[in-house]
């Protein structure tokens, strides 16, 4: 099953199981079913609870907050995650704040879906990974879609959290298969953390390095891990947390070794990886061979032309290179 189908099924399941659940966004109705077809079939089965909205990202996010405020489960789709910038006030100053600024906890079941990332030639305003701009906002949790996490479970975790959640969905993942594609590696779940190790037990037992990455970058990390293993006999482990913020760093610790990297598609500067590195340093600095190494896209706009886009965005070879640098110490 492809990731988009898995997510679509998860949304069907949510609307099925929760009579208070709503899905709203731009162009989400059938027969169109959303710009990335993730909402396909929903409006046909649940015409009252799937709502197409005007092109008003701030407005529709506010409506979702109003639905959540009155006890509903609201799932809003921002057509391109870049446009979450238009909903920043509703997210930062209303939804996230409302959980705690009225003195006692006000639970809000609210998910804002953000199709994210480049690699499809959509250009500077339709290709960004804006996770970093939402890191560190009290009352707002960040999750990222991954091929290793069943979206039904991820949606349930976000709903159960009782606070607004942003769900970043790397667009490149939509058409990729769920689960493990590379026969050299095997993925398992440790709570909300996906742990991917070489199939060979001796290699899995003693990884030379560990990469922490959000779901959207996982396949690029795996590609680097394959080339490192096959070409250089360097064996690594991949950790993919479903929730990026607040990060459960304690869950990472048992899986880390002396060499740790964080790979993400966001552009350089104030990255999610910087936050991960800080948390890891605080806890296991003495166990590390060197500082956590950050790999990300260049500090640049994301160009449209394919050859230019490749120069800016994080690649498997950049991860490969960073691992070798880290091991060289």
């Amino acid at each position: 099953m492809r990731v988009a189908e898995n997510l679509n099924a998860a949304l069907h399941g949510l609307l099925d199981d929760d009579p208070t659940a709503y899905v709203l966004g731009e162009d989400v109705l059938d027969p169109y079913g959303g710009a990335f077809k993730v909402t396909k079939g929903l409006s046909t089965r649940f015409p009252d609870r799937v709502i197409t909205t005007p092109i008003s990202e701030g407005g529709l996010t506010g409506v979702a907050a109003g639905l959540a405020l009155t006890g509903n489960t609201a799932v809003a789709e921002i057509m391109f995650g870049d446009f979450a910038a238009l909903a920043f006030d509703q997210l930062c100053n209303f939804a996230a704040k409302s959980v705690s600024m009225y003195g006692s906890r006000l639970p809000l079941r609210m998910i804002v879906r953000c199709p994210t990332g480049g690699g499809r030639g959509y250009g500077p305003t339709h290709s960004q990974s804006l996770q970093k701009h939402f890191v560190g906002m009290p009352g707002l949790a960040l999750y990222e879609m991954s091929p290793f996490h069943d979206n039904r479970d991820v949606l349930a975790a976000m709903v159960d959290r009782g606070e607004p959640c942003l769900f970043f969905e790397d667009k490149v993942l939509y058409t990729r298969p769920m689960g493990q594609a590379d026969p050299l590696f095997r993925a398992r779940l440790d709570g909300g953390l996906a742990v991917v190790d070489p199939v060979v037990p001796e290699l899995a037992a003693r990884p030379d390095y560990v990469i922490v990455t959000p779901g959207g970058t996982a396949h690029r990390a795996l590609e680097a891990m394959r080339s490192l293993l096959v070409e250089e006999e360097i064996s690594g482990r991949l950790l993919v947390p479903s929730r990026l913020y607040p990060l459960d760093v304690e869950a990472l610790l048992p899986h880390l070794g002396g060499v740790v990297l964080v790979a993400e598609e966001g552009t350089a500067g104030g990255t999610w990886g910087g936050e991960v590195a800080h948390l890891v340093h605080q806890r296991i600095w003495e166990r590390l061979r060197g500082p956590v190494r950050l790999v990300h896209s260049a500090a640049s706009v994301i160009p449209t032309a394919a050859h230019l886009e490749r120069e800016v965005l994080l690649t498997a070879s950049a991860i490969h290179h960073a691992v070798r640098e880290a091991l060289r110490g």
């Binding site: 407005g59 907050a65 109003g66 609201a74 209303f94 704040k97």
Partner: peptide, 27 residues
Amino acid sequence: HIHRDRYLSTGVQGESLPVAAGVALHL
């Protein structure tokens, strides 16, 4: 910034209108 029962205030201009629209939709 006050919330009590079905009363809610917030300090950013205009922000509460879309929220109120969502509440009105529910009602």
